[in-house]
Design a protein around this nucleic acid. Sequence first.
RNA 1: CGGGAUGUAGCGCAGCCCGGUAGCGCACUACGUUCGGGACGUAGGGGCCGCAGGUUCGAAUCCUGUCAUCCCGACCA
Length: 491
Amino acid sequence: MSKEITSRKEDYAQWYNDLVIKGGLADYSAVRGCMVIKPYGFALWEEMRDELDRMFKETGHENAYFPLFIPKSFLSREAAHVEGFAKECAVVTHYRLKNDPDGGGIIVDPEAKLEEELIVRPTSETIIWNTYKTWIQSYRDLPLLINQWANVVRWEMRTRLFLRTTEFLWQEGHTAHANAEEAITEARLMLDVYTDFVENFMALPVIRGVKTPSERFAGAIDTYCIEAMMQDGKALQAGTSHFLGQNFAKAFDVKFSDKQNKLDYVWATSWGVSTRLVGALVMAHSDDEGLILPPKIAPIQVVIVPIYKGDERKELLDARGKELASALKKAGIRVKFDNNDNNRPGWKFAEYEKKGVPVRLALGLRDLDNHTVEVARRDTKDKMSLPAEGLIERIVLLLQEIQESMYRKALLFRDDHITKADDWDEFVRLLDEKGGFISAHWDGTPETEEAIKDKLKATIRCIPLNNPPENGKCILTGRPSKERVLFARAY
RNA sequence: CGGGAUGUAGCGCAGCCCGGUAGCGCACUACGUUCGGGACGUAGGGGCCGCAGGUUCGAAUCCUGUCAUCCCGACCA
């Protein structure tokens, strides 16, 4: 049992905070709602970012960078968009400070008021489409496939480390196409990319679906999403991809000439994932001893802990440890040899478990004599002694096995937390006692969706893609329904 | 923005009721012994007691304000 981490059973929210703070991922900062991402947490984000970036480029996208500030007037061009974001925007009104003539330190200079206020971007559709207007003339300029890695600000009332912070890091893809079909294909393609990444790298199974109109992105025609299930039975939206139709093209007057030289508005998508994924990763896999990171994105995949007996053969032990580390590194493994003399082995064991390092190797005098290494895996806590011969190959395989095993475990949990409900009492009972996704019929109206949300705090997470048609009655109103949708309480 | 809690050493806390030299554990520094599951000894360093007023001979402690953070709700990725 960890001395420092609150157990999930005792207090799930506190457990999550403890993991993030004590696992060394992030700290609270002096700024309300904003966190400091610490080196270990940032390394994890970098692993995720680099893999996603590779995937984006492989699917033909290029990176660019657009301004942090957006003129206020831009935001209001698209009606639904401004409606969705207006309540959570940080606004820059002045550009200068000065000494307080009354001696109270520094104040905003009232004379330095901006002609037009600037919004700190909550997302960049408006500034980007304003720019695209000048980039796009002809069908030959399409498709335009751009991504940007950036920070954004949404003034949320309540924040939680990684899951919802005032400022967060993300990527936002913004593409322009000659017709609707191509744009929809793009939106779906990026949903595939997200699915691939989250399932195969984060070892986290997701449900792919489409949002109901009330859960749609502000300004979108359709919002596709991937939804993941956390250990406490709450759902978490892990990524979204939007088909924006011609909404932004019309708002910013972005037209192109087609082959027949006819002018038309271009078709758009946008898609994003954020540092929120780090929160999902933490909540989905970890246990009461600390983080459990999937090997493919763990900043440290293997840690080697030497166990000394005084100075006896210490140099040999060090040499053997370094040799092992460099052999693992050569095999493409991110490895750390921790021969720091300040902490004892037991302390290190606990520390690296807290940090979720997938594999720990312990190397002591006994191992030198027997030509063995003690191998411990973080996810199952299994320990075994392996011969030094062929160890590298075994570790490579073990990392794969851990990756797959973590996915299987999360998948079992997820599948066990999709439950059908066909009457209201059952629906309520499931939500309160079991949690997870509840698959139920819905009459398709926003009113019913809203009523269920008010009563139970459960929302429709998505209508799964490839959802089988099935005639039934709405869980609340009893009106006819043609398919089931997934309800859940969500982060 | 409502409700609750908390601000005292880097972290976790005691002291506050009942005003009188600011403490404990961990961490840190030095040296030594240790090292197969969170080591131990000895000697050290570190504080505008969140901030601003007030009461008092004297305030971490009492009073008034204020700021910040966390948790729970409404809003949201």
